[in-house]
Design a binder for these strands. Structure first.
Lengths: 237, 237
DNA sequence: ACCTGAACACCGTTCAAGT
DNA sequence: ACCTGAACACCGTTCAAGT
């Protein structure tokens, strides 16, 4: 009885494919490039298909609907948030760096925070859950447990995503070099309005609308970290 | 010389208008009702026109484009945030109540936080700026000045809007009584996934995904307030 | 198994034409 | 001054038909 190969062995077929037939991974990669170029509003099933050299209807062979594309995309971006370097760093520092890395990953891709806000936080992909796990891990290591660990993680996550959301949509109407122009626009608009009715905004108008988002982010992050630290020490003692 | 009225005096015409010709205010009121019924995705120029008994093209006589409708709508919602009751309350309490009122106003209208996130924070309307002024006012009264007052107000605003954004989009796929079902779905999905890879999420899964958003909000708010208080006392001493 | 062509039910917005 | 009808350039999605 000769042990011949079956006529269409999978071992033979795999390398003989003429074109490797559009991968789900190609789709996500193309979608990410399209997002960076065209923004969230330009991220269209039809545009995505064109970039892949295919008709829009074909995409539905690889993906259930647009929501799934967005979910895969969100997870791909979250994959770029590095895990904490060492598990034995002080929790204060670890949380600080994770928040900064988190923000940095979102800022790397246009409208990333808006994408996150429009997709369900619990993926199909593993990375959104993984970042959340890193967050909870640091907080549990710090001494938070149960509800406190969950609520503290939620707070950190909300702060980072919420901050970057405003940070990125601030630039929404600045297509080209309109960034500086818009800054001037806002300043002009502010100084023209009946600002005497808004004395407090007027008093701090400069730092309120300037472009120093790093300073603003660090103020917020450090305030949150201090609040958490206080909560930890008072529940212990 | 008889002092006869001109044939088409404006004094006569104004009360003789058959229909008082669609007001900009009617438009906003209808848009708000439509938002509450149909959500952000159902808020369409065509749907809005239908509700007003008019063709979609007619809306452009009263409004520049859809973005302006959204901006007017956002301001109408912010008008429902009450100003602080007394200026001499302890700043800690005043900030606490303003944050709660702010959240309450957003929760009153479907997808309100998403609406805020998709419109520029400095309205055409007065109310977004007014709430911001209230916020800065409380913080300046507490002793914050300059950059610190601006950054602290930004933090509070980001926290409230960011929190409610997640709170409201959590329910996005719950059309009818699917709320409890979805809760069970998430729990089932969590317990089925390779949760051994996410030990920290697993350890606090319950309080992480439960529906007690009030508890979560208060934890975050109190943590932020404590952080601000600490910042205030250390910069003084 | 995957892609195409064509269609369906929508969008926001413009514009000439009516009154 | 305001509204209509019709059009334009888009959407996401479905489905029979091809290979």
């Amino acid at each position: 009885m000769p042990r011949s190969r079956p006529p269409h062995s999978v071992l033979w077929e795999v390398p003989s494919r003429p074109r490797p037939t559009l991968t789900r991974d190609d789709l996500v990669r193309a979608a990410l490039a399209l997002l960076d170029e065209a923004g969230f509003d330009g991220l269209t099933m039809r545009n995505l298909a064109e970039r892949l050299g295919v008709q829009a209807a074909s995409l539905y062979n690889h993906v259930r609907d647009k929501r799934e594309v967005l979910a895969l995309l969100a997870d791909a971006i979250m994959a770029e948030v590095p895990p904490p370097e060492s598990a034995d760093a002080p929790w204060h520092d670890a949380l600080y760096w994770l928040a900064c890395d988190y923000r940095r990953a979102l800022l790397t891709h246009r409208d990333a925070a808006r994408l996150l806000s429009e997709t369900t936080p619990l993926g199909p992909g593993p990375n959104r859950l993984r970042v959340l796990d890193d967050l909870v891990g640091i907080l549990r290591g710090a001494g938070f447990a149960g509800e406190a660990a969950a609520d503290a993680a939620w707070l950190c996550n909300t702060f980072v995503t919420g901050f970057v959301l405003e940070e990125q949509t601030q630039l929404v109407s600045s297509d080209d070099a309109a960034a500086g122009e818009r800054q001037a626009d806002v300043a002009g608009w502010l100084s023209q309005l009946p600002l005497e009715h808004y004395p407090n905004v007027l008093a701090v108008a400069g730092p309120l609308i300037d472009g120093e988002t790093d300073r603003r982010f660090l103020f917020g992050l450090n305030t949150v970290l201090d609040g958490l630290e206080l909560r930890l020490s008072t529940s212990r003692g």
